[in-house]
Design a protein around this nucleic acid. Structure first.
Length: 446
RNA sequence: GCCCCCAUCGUCCAGCGGCCUAGGACGCCUGCCUUUCACGCAGGUAACACGGGUUCGAAUCCCGUUGGGGGUACCA
């Protein structure tokens, strides 16, 4: 039998990294076994049934490259079918009507204003074989009757979920561990409907440093936010694949198609995984460096465009292209590009307080260094070698090695201790007068 | 409270009874390179939660303890 999996998010207006990981694992499984990846939007809730909430969800999935074969189906459009199943359950006595105080009300047909509750059988054990967790079982005696149809005339999640999985022929339900305890109820529903059970695979949760499930209140969980900060989709998806799974050859950073070849759902492990931003940055930086030069230029374009922190008219594509290779080598995210080159396009460099403290306040001889540099740079030849020699000479006369000597000049000119090679940048990208002006400006602040 | 799940370096992953004096990656530290940072290279730091079994032999199997997490809605 060919495998059919689904990603069934509830639309909240954005794609959560935990959801993205679930979508990815479903997609990986489908692609690796040649199955079908179905997308279904679980919007039984009236508040969630809004197209603007699903649009961004779909856009982020596309950005990640997780294409679906069927759907999106909308649960809200299947209400009649859900109602039909509830009617059947009510008719067969497996469910009953109940009022707002949870009191059972006689009747075997649905009544407006009354909810429908599923009758929990006594003394039964609901057991199933989870692909990642193995045998899991629940005693029905620990469970209570549960609402499957709201008094406002809408189906509850568990009911809609069970009916849709059955109707859509889902063979594997791959999802987060937070849904594990809902399984016995879904199984009961499926059994009552006479529908086959899918096999389940409950993925370990993604947690924060407190080892709590990632939450949108506390944690940075929006895929869109990562996209906006300049993470590449291939890096995002690569990193996510590493949470709960690892390639057999221990090569962690690699293209998605290789992961598809290596991925096996039964290899997923059970323990919760910490979403480690440091590692994500490393994965991203590695993918960034691997990009072809032109591709890199295309990808950073949005960050140096209209939203950049400098006046658009001051941007100089020619100057920027001189910096491109250096930037690609050093950036961890695309968004870091502005900090790397902003001094070229801003009237005055941003004055990074930490850099100022380190290179100007705490460093000895900073004023002497600036004065000396101002003097020699005023009339040396304006090329890299000459500029370097000039600054080095001033440093030597003060007993400073080049590394120390260039620091105050770097901060005066670029605003930061970190940046591109200084002398090349000054000689090739900046006017002598501007360099001198910035040194004087810094000197005045000391 | 009750139910369920989980437990190898700080973190992620490998290990599925002997190859383990436990491997890789991120992080951190040291050195080299060096015009800062980064990259690269060479090293280093650091873990099988605890207690019982089973077995000739356990990180690997079983039980318990402890710790952590999830669930427990007319949310999904």
């Amino acid at each position: 039998m060919t495998s059919r999996v689904r990603f069934a998010p509830s639309p909240t207006g954005f794609l959560h990294v935990g959801s993205a990981r679930t979508a990815l694992f479903n997609w990986l499984h489908a692609r690796s076994v040649g199955g079908t990846f179905v997308l279904r939007i679980e919007d039984t809730d009236a508040e969630r049934n809004r197209s603007d909430l699903t649009d961004s969800l779909l856009a982020e999935l596309e950005w990640l490259g997780l294409d679906w074969d069927e759907g999106p189906y909308f649960q809200s459009e299947r209400r009649d079918r859900h109602r039909e199943v509830v009617e059947d359950l009510l008719g067969s006595g497996q469910a009953y009507l109940c009022d707002a105080e949870n009191r059972e009300v006689d009747g075997s047909t649905m009544v407006d204003g009354l909810a429908v509750r599923f009758r929990m059988p006594a003394g039964a054990t609901m057991a199933f074989d989870d692909i990642v967790r193995g045998e899991v079982s629940f005693a029905t005696d620990d469970l209570e009757d549960f609402v499957i149809w709201r008094s406002n005339g809408s189906p509850m999640f568990l009911l809609a979920n069970a009916v849709d999985d059955a109707d859509m022929g889902i063979t594997q339900a791959i999802r987060g561990e937070d849904l594990l305890s809902g399984v016995p109820k879904v199984l009961l529903l499926l059994d009552a409907m006479g529908a086959p059970r899918p096999t389940y695979a409950h993925l370990p949760l993604l947690v924060n440093e407190q080892r709590k499930k990632l939450s949108k209140r506390r944690d940075d969980v929006s895929i869109g936010d990562y996209r906006e900060r300049g993470y590449l989709p291939e890096a995002m998806v690569n990193y996510l694949a590493l949470l709960g799974w690892g390639p057999p050859d221990e090569v962690e950073i690699r293209p998605l198609d290789e992961i598809v070849d290596l991925f096996r759902i039964q290899d997923v492990n059970k323990a919760a995984a910490f979403f480690d931003l440091k590692k994500l940055e490393h994965v991203n930086a590695t993918h960034l460096r691997a990009l072809a030069r032109d591709d890199f230029i295309d990808r950073v374009a949005p960050w140096v465009g209209d939203d950049a922190p400098w006046p658009p008219e001051r941007f100089d594509a020619g100057l920027f292209s001189v910096m491109v290779d250096l930037a690609q080598e050093k950036l961890r995210t695309l968004g870091d590009v502005t900090r790397f080159v902003d001094f070229l396009f801003l009237e005055d460099p941003v004055d990074d307080p930490e850099s100022w403290e380190k290179a100007m306040v705490k460093a000895p001889l900073a004023t002497e260094m600036l004065d000396g540099a101002a003097a020699v740079l005023a009339d040396c030849a304006w090329d890299t070698a000459s500029v370097l020699a000039a600054v080095a000479e001033v440093g030597e006369s003060l007993g400073l090695k080049l590394g120390k000597a260039q620091a105050p000049v770097r901060v005066a000119v670029t605003g930061r201790t970190v940046g591109p090679p200084l002398f090349e940048t000054m000689a090739e990208c900046m006017e002598r007068a501007e360099v001198l002006r910035r040194i004087a400006r810094a000197r005045a602040r000391l």
